[in-house]
């Protein structure tokens, strides 16, 4: 297809989304083209407005419709307990589990020197400031169990060490329904180190 071709343009734009290859992008494009034009218009407007309508919470970085998010405004949430996550979808997953009643701090990234992401690229000063101003007692670090996630967790612990804040890491180990045989040594080692009496 030649340049300036509207079909090729949409295929290429959709193909930049995660999990969407050229074939799916092509299918989606022709689907939109074959549907009622009002759908395409509604989709386009929704896409165009998403950045204007959704704001990052000025306190924790979560997404919401206002300057501060619903969780930060909720007086029933414990202000002394903070959970650090890498991305908003992680926050959503924890919320869905209903296992945490504190507030969050979203980093929108992880330390990754190989990709040029350093501490100054993450809202870590804000985290320290929040711990001081809100009288936070405990920070739970729920970053992923990857090299970047672990490095970030250890860095958060380093940064908060001089403050009077307890820093904990979510437990890791064998997943529900997981097979011990195929669990890596570090995970198994952690699972044993974190064993609980029955």
């Amino acid at each position: 297809m030649s340049q300036g071709d509207p079909i090729a343009e949409l295929v290429s734009l959709l193909g930049r989304l995660p999990g969407i290859g050229e074939r799916t992008a092509t299918r989606l494009t022709f689907h939109v083209l074959g549907s009622d034009p009002t759908y395409a218009r509604a989709l386009g407007e929704s896409l165009a407005q998403i950045h204007g309508r959704v704001k990052r919470c000025t306190i924790c970085g979560n997404y919401g419709a206002e300057e501060t998010c619903a969780i930060c405004r909720d007086p029933r949430r414990e202000a002394e307990l903070l959970c650090v996550v890498a991305r908003v979808p992680d926050l959503v997953a924890i919320e869905r589990s209903g296992s945490f009643r504190g507030r969050y701090h979203v980093l929108h990234g992880l330390l990754a020197p190989l990709d040029g992401v350093g501490p100054d690229d993450l809202p870590l000063h804000d985290l320290v400031a929040r711990c001081e101003s809100d009288g936070v007692r405990e920070v739970v670090v729920a970053t992923p169990l990857s090299v970047e996630g672990e490095a970030t967790a250890l860095y958060v612990a380093e940064v908060l060490r001089p403050k009077r804040v307890k820093v904990s890491r979510i437990a890791s180990g064998v997943p529900h329904g997981g097979e011990l045989e195929f669990t890596d040594q570090i995970t198994l080692g952690r699972a044993f180190a974190g064993r609980k009496p029955l």
């Binding site: 330390l111 990754a112 020197p113 190989l114 350093g118 501490p119 090299v147 672990e150 490095a151 970030t152 967790a153 250890l154 860095y155 612990a157 380093e158 940064v159």
Partner: peptide
């Protein structure tokens, strides 16, 4: 190996935050 490459990258920087190097030391 990834943690090692990350630590080496930090060591080559002009400014180094010692705390981020320590995070990799632990790993």
């Amino acid at each position: 190996n990834k943690a090692l490459r990350s630590r080496n990258r930090l060591l080559k920087r002009e400014q180094v935050d010692r705390r981020s190097v320590r995070a990799y030391d632990t790993m």
